[in-house]
Design a protein around this nucleic acid. Structure first.
Lengths: 168, 168
DNA sequence: CAGTATCCTGTCCGATACTG
DNA sequence: CAGTATCGGACAGGATACTG
């Protein structure tokens, strides 16, 4: 009976977790971002049991994050390619990376991001696409969207000191 | 024997997942970002069983993402406050939110981010803090950091078409 | 209100063996 | 090489009862 609904499943965060909430899923995506495509590449990189790998790959394919493509006919061989949906998951991984580097790498960093042109280290932050203003907890806040139900509205308005506004 | 090491635990992404890899942990953090602090607030908002809530809160406290503070003496009452480490997790949630809004909300968005001053909707993207250049898969890439071990290097260099460079 | 204490179930995950 | 099949354990998560 596990994980049937998780409360208010309207929340996009909860829905995202529905697809990638398992450990291996995220790590597989990470490796896919790094360019891995084939079963044994994932298997070696992750040291994951093959049955688990099959299950996670299958679930990622059916969630539309990976695509299974035949790259050879005899014998039939498949590779797992990131879809656009999968590629667009990158900011989540980058944010997770940045956070991990900041708080969970006391001995020094093992993975970094660099700018491909200048070869300088990148320090990733979130900004608004249009205004380019950095997103902080002061400058930005969550609000109920047009399709928010009352549970969502209730939860979010807590943060905003009870200004029950919907954004159209 | 579950989840003891997960392969190469050097990876900051894997380490992050070690702390927040469970469903409820992320959703609790989401609610904490919204301003919830007390046991029953989380309980109602998430519709989570109280024992699970206790377990997840305890684990988040021991991971240093939440702090348990007494806010009343008789009877003793505690609230759960985001630490800096916890607050700094926000970009991950925002990225997850943005991705979920883009791909998992066909009927319309239920949660949005707005700029507190202009009240306009924010479209969050990742940029480099210094250059302000947006991070794409073309403009940026992962590289092994100074403390990368050989597994990490091997995995990452796959993406970079085998240019084995460490960034000092 | 803010949890703790039990008990139960599902499944994530691991280990191993096997196949075309 | 690229998986499938089978088995078992640990634990996330659920339901319910109870306490100061």
């Amino acid at each position: 009976m596990k994980r049937k609904s998780f409360g208010n499943m309207q929340c996009p965060v909860a829905r995202s977790l529905e697809l990638v909430g398992e450990w291996w899923s995220i790590l597989i995506l990470r490796d896919a971002m790094h360019g891995l495509t084939r079963f044994d590449e994932f298997e070696k990189s992750l040291e994951i049991a093959p049955n688990m790998l099959t299950r996670r790959l299958t679930s990622l394919v059916s969630s539309g994050l990976l695509e299974r493509k035949k790259y050879q006919d005899h014998p039939p061989r498949y590779e797992y390619i990131l879809t656009k949906k999968g590629k667009d998951f990158r900011p989540v991984l980058v944010s997770l990376l940045a956070w991990g580097n900041q708080y969970l790498a006391p001995e020094g960093k093992s993975v970094l991001l660099v700018d491909s042109q200048s070869e300088t280290i990148i320090d990733p932050i979130l900004v608004d696409r249009n205004s380019k203003k950095p997103l902080t907890r002061i400058s930005s806040r969550f609000v109920p969207g047009p399709k928010a139900n009352k549970e969502t509205i209730a939860r979010i308005n807590f943060a905003n000191e009870r200004k029950p506004k919907k954004i159209k």
